[in-house]
Write a protein that binds this DNA or RNA. Structure first.
Length: 146
DNA sequence: CCATTCATAGCCT
DNA sequence: AGGCTATGAATGG
């Protein structure tokens, strides 16, 4: 079942499975509001509230990673504190993989923000973002002020 | 400093 | 199995 959330940075849609786990989260075009009537209170919406208020709660139930690597990657991403950044090179060395392969894995992350893949940037420059580079910029900017 | 090239490798579908 | 990079380092202008 699909839900929507209106964040200060733009609309967010996400998918909850029957078991309550969040399987996907997508960032809509920044500054494009979503239909207000589609917003419903869920564990994910509560978490997003907490995130955008600067006091982050424990993560809601998430769908499990499909591979061992994704699990390791998810943990590594969650270990990056707010406001911190890692480069693709740094993180790939930490995980024992190649920078490019890491990019592939990040691009396939179905749970941006929840799993903070936006804190990984290129060695020079900002790098890419699956939901649009503008989102990555605003997220980093937002976290910087926390 | 910017553009281009190329080595590289493993993750995802 | 095969492609396909959300890289990075090196090079050359």
């Amino acid at each position: 079942m699909q839900y929507f959330y209106q964040s200060p940075l733009g609309g967010i849609s996400y998918e909850l499975l029957d078991n309550g786990q969040c399987s996907h989260l997508t960032l809509i075009e920044p500054n494009q509001p979503v239909k207000p009537e589609a917003q419903t209170e869920t564990p994910v919406s509560k978490w997003l509230d907490s995130y955008f208020n600067g006091r982050i709660l424990a993560l809601p139930a998430l769908e499990k990673p499909h591979t061992a690597f994704q699990k390791k990657l998810r943990q590594a991403l969650l270990d990056i504190p707010i406001g911190e950044r890692r480069t693709y090179g740094e993180l790939s060395r930490q995980l024992g993989t190649a920078p490019r392969a890491l990019g592939q894995a990040l691009a396939a992350n179905p749970l941006p923000i929840l799993i903070p893949c936006h804190r990984v940037v290129a060695a020079s420059g900002i790098g890419g973002f699956s939901c649009g580079i503008e989102w990555k910029k605003s997220l980093l900017k937002f976290e910087h002020g926390c």
